[in-house]
Computed example of a mutant assay.
Amino acid sequence: MAIAGALDIERTATGLVPRRLPAWTRPQVTDPYMRLMVPRPAGVRLVLRTDADTLELDVFVTRFRNAHYPLFPVAFDAVVGGAQVISRPVRGGDLCVVRAGQVVETAPGEAEAIRFGGLGTGWKDVEVWLPQAAIVELRELRADGAVAPGRVPERKWVHYGSSISHCAEAGGPTSTWPARVARRAGLDLTSLAFAGNCHLDPFVARTIRDLPADVITLKVAVNVQNLDTLKVRTFGPALHGFLDTVRDGHPQTPVLVVSPILCPTAEDRAGPTVQDGTGRYVATGEGSSGLTLVRMRELIEEVVAVRAERDPRLLYLDGRSLFGPDDADDLYDGLHPNADGYRRIGERFHARVFGPSGLLPMSGADVRAP
């Protein structure tokens, strides 16, 4: 069995916790909320070949619920033969309540066994996708047949983004828009989508620099606006520096920079963006950055245009082409899409980027994700 999409494995007293940044970054990840994001295994999956009819995975899962909303579904998805998806909900483990990026309450739980039955006889490829919005400790895999390491697609896609790429609300790990796109285009996904934490951190740029990649996509800026972490003076240079580092390791790899999707409250108002008493996100305009989403899109497009004069493999996509004014009703909290919104983002991203008429056309398996 292989673990795809993880760049580090933390060994605990009882199992293994996949992490999405390499071990050398641990001392540099100083933000408490970022520390909660790195071990949430968006895009991470167990890849194997087996003749077993039943697989059972012992796990301990830590789930997280925003204090203002009910818990979104947390599930393991088994993809059998590249097409059939069997989803199993998580019912046990710890449940943490989060407010303003801090865990304020924890209800302890127990380990559980996730069982996938009826896989069929004969050898087959199976991927078990881990929950994108929970921390997972893997304890034991059991099967009623032989298990061997599986194979991942040859072409590698590295994607960097925020909660809108992390997709906690998607309902399951194969329903996030990057997972849908990767499966449809036949790409091996490494997801560096960290909810609340896409701030052009240098350790992420160096991680991308050192990873094998056939295509790199960077969906940036909304978290910078949300937390008011950069200014007009520093945002452009920070993006240039991030791209410089990526290009140090990938001088010829296609790189697509995507600006933010629609967020009505932040289009013409700077951050910080906070939750009000109802749980909706509201841009306060109280920061000193002056970075509205309108201005950030302008700056991103300017950075890409200047660099593209000497770097034709660097491209730009306006995020509103993925999710724009006509989609605003699917922002359940004013900032994040619901499951239907993420599905549309995936369809549009595939068409505009990897589809036959896209910016970076990819011929692949074209598996229709559910």
Rank of each mutant, 00 (worst) to 15 (best):
A2P: 14
A2Q: 15
A6V: 04
A6N: 04
I9H: 09
A13L: 10
V17D: 03
R20K: 13
P22D: 14
Q28R: 10
V29K: 11
M34A: 13
R35L: 00
M37T: 08
P39R: 09
R40F: 00
G43R: 05
G43F: 04
V44R: 01
V47H: 01
V47E: 11
T54N: 06
T54E: 11
L55N: 01
V61E: 08
T62G: 09
F64A: 01
F72L: 15
F72T: 15
V79N: 01
G81I: 03
A83W: 14
A83M: 14
V90Y: 05
V90S: 02
C96W: 04
R99W: 08
G101I: 04
G101R: 01
T106Y: 05
E110M: 06
E112A: 02
G118W: 00
D125H: 11
P131I: 00
P131S: 07
P131L: 02
V136E: 01
L138T: 02
L138P: 02
L138Y: 05
R139W: 13
L141G: 03
R142Y: 02
A146S: 15
A148W: 08
P149W: 01
G150P: 08
P153F: 13
R155I: 14
S163A: 06
H166C: 03
H166D: 03
A168L: 08
A170Q: 05
G172T: 05
S175F: 15
W177P: 00
P178L: 06
L192Q: 08
A193W: 02
F194H: 08
A195T: 05
G196H: 00
L200A: 05
D201F: 13
V204A: 11
A205K: 12
A205R: 12
A205C: 10
T207F: 04
R209K: 10
L211P: 05
L211S: 09
A213E: 14
A213F: 11
T217V: 05
V220T: 15
N223V: 06
N223S: 13
Q225H: 12
T229C: 07
T229A: 09
L230V: 07
T234L: 09
F235I: 04
F235Y: 09
P237V: 08
A238W: 03
H240K: 13
T245L: 05
T245A: 10
D248P: 15
P251S: 08
L256P: 06
P260D: 00
P264Q: 06
T265Q: 07
A266I: 03
E267T: 04
R269V: 14
T273A: 13
G277A: 03
G277P: 02
G279V: 09
R280W: 07
G285D: 07
S288A: 15
L293S: 04
V294E: 15
E298T: 12
E298G: 15
V303D: 12
V304I: 12
A305I: 10
A305E: 14
A308I: 12
L317Y: 02
L317S: 00
R320T: 12
D326P: 11
A328V: 13
D329F: 07
Y332T: 01
H336N: 06
G341M: 06
R343D: 04
R343S: 02
R352S: 10
S357F: 14
P361L: 07
G364S: 08
G364R: 04
D366C: 14
